[in-house]
Design a protein around this nucleic acid. Structure first.
Lengths: 247, 247
DNA sequence: CGAAATTTGTCCGTATGTATG
DNA sequence: ACATACATACGGACAAATTTC
């Protein structure tokens, strides 16, 4: 095709291969619907082991870009735009899109200590100090909030967000820019529960109403907690949708 | 510890190891916050290769149960509270795994016509005939169901499932084997709502109780509907988790 | 501070199983 | 029956990060 891959020194080989394949897919060298060359061929062509090719393919399969079938081959299932937007390959609503299509009005700020169940859910040591912000989130231009949002951050990030009243971007991009640490993993949880009082008051609902809670844990390198966010949605206006990849 | 793992014949070794570890975590043999034995030790202890152990650990990492750090070890990050309380399927394989760890008791069968909201949610033409089955789902060996399950199939598949009373595999694999069509895509939705009467009666809850409903649409080639499944979980024993990874 | 030990991460080679065409 | 191609599993080797001494 176009020679070997290995240039970048620091990054793992299988990631370089994965990006290489992704570029070829994006450029149309491997159109959607067609089969990739067999793993063995890719391995010899790129001068890497088949194991490394499989690792690279696994990355793209988890993003839903490729689908493999035993005895057939690995099919290109979709093109993907930008390696920066890939968090959302699994989710229906892109986190970035979501953030930029909405507005978070920060109306509460506090310095708190994580305790008990909160500390357990966040996976931090009890007593850890955190900067807390909360407020309603609106669809841009809307006057009625569609969810109530709580955010927990490392206290050192307080100056970054202290002056912000309305957020129109994903908060973790600010965190990334300021700390230099990159969000490597986002763990999400959806759960049904009764609407807490605070959320109810912002959403114009009664405490105890049907509620869907979405929590997100943003991990940096080494699973360090960078941000923890909680959204409370009225149960009748929320649904979480995903498309599962094969394998 | 308690001997080897391998018994089950059909299932891959790394999945057996993964379940083994999961049981040990759930049982408290590896408490939350502690480190797992080194991969090499697990490998010799379980009489498998380190590669297989790593595959097994990777499964649990994707579910957020384990977190690994280079130079340190693999830490137990969470218990699946009971593990009936956490329902997680990020891939088709997870779904397969889940199905084989549970039993669906089919106690209702009917031929129905999709109408109104149901037809809309399923994305089929109103009036389309469908074969309906429903019943409680148990963790293998458990006597209390953890969810109530409804399934809608193409009527032509009736003979395939008509004689089945207890399902221990993913239904869509049966569908695949019989139709020759392959499930290319699974669309999931999670929603909070009040427990319907039928589900409540099977789950020993009151109608109107907090409930989480998971629906799955199994698409064949060309987005043709192969199966539509609905699960009703008590709200207090359900949570849906995903990890969005950057690598 | 530095060296050594530990542990996960990456990479390679090889062999065999299994579904597909 | 046969070849193809992915899936699983084993083995070994070295790199990189962390902790320990």
């Amino acid at each position: 095709m176009e020679g070997d891959v290995h240039f970048e020194e620091g990054t793992p080989l299988y990631l370089q291969v994965s990006r290489h394949l992704q570029r070829l897919i994006a450029s149309g060298s491997y159109p959607v619907g067609t089969l990739l060359p067999p793993e063995a061929d890719l391995a010899t062509e790129l001068q890497v082991s088949r194991h490394t090719v499989r690792q690279a393919i696994a990355v793209l399969r988890r993003r839903g870009l490729l689908q493999a079938r035993k005895g057939v081959g690995t099919r290109v299932a979709a093109v993907e735009d930008d390696w920066r937007t890939r968090f959302t390959a699994n989710t229906r609503g892109d986190l970035f899109d979501f953030a930029s299509a909405t507005e978070l009005h920060i109306e509460k700020r506090d310095m708190i200590e994580a305790r008990g169940r909160l500390a357990a859910e966040m996976g931090v040591r009890p007593g850890r100090k955190l900067y807390y912000m909360a407020g309603p989130r609106f669809m841009s231009g809307d006057s009625i909030p569609f969810c109530f949002n709580e955010v927990y951050l490392d206290p050192r990030l307080k100056p970054v967000v202290a002056e912000i009243d309305v957020l129109r971007v994903a908060l973790f991009t600010l965190v990334e820019n300021h700390t230099g640490d990159r969000v490597e993993e986002i763990q999400q949880e959806v759960r049904a529960l009764h609407m807490p009082e605070l959320a109810a008051s912002y959403l114009g609902r009664a405490p105890g109403d049907l509620c869907a809670r979405m929590t997100r844990r943003f991990n940096g390198s080494g699973s360090r907690l960078l941000e923890y966010a909680v959204q409370y949605h009225p149960g009748d206006t929320f649904s979480y949708q995903t498309t599962l990849s094969s394998t």
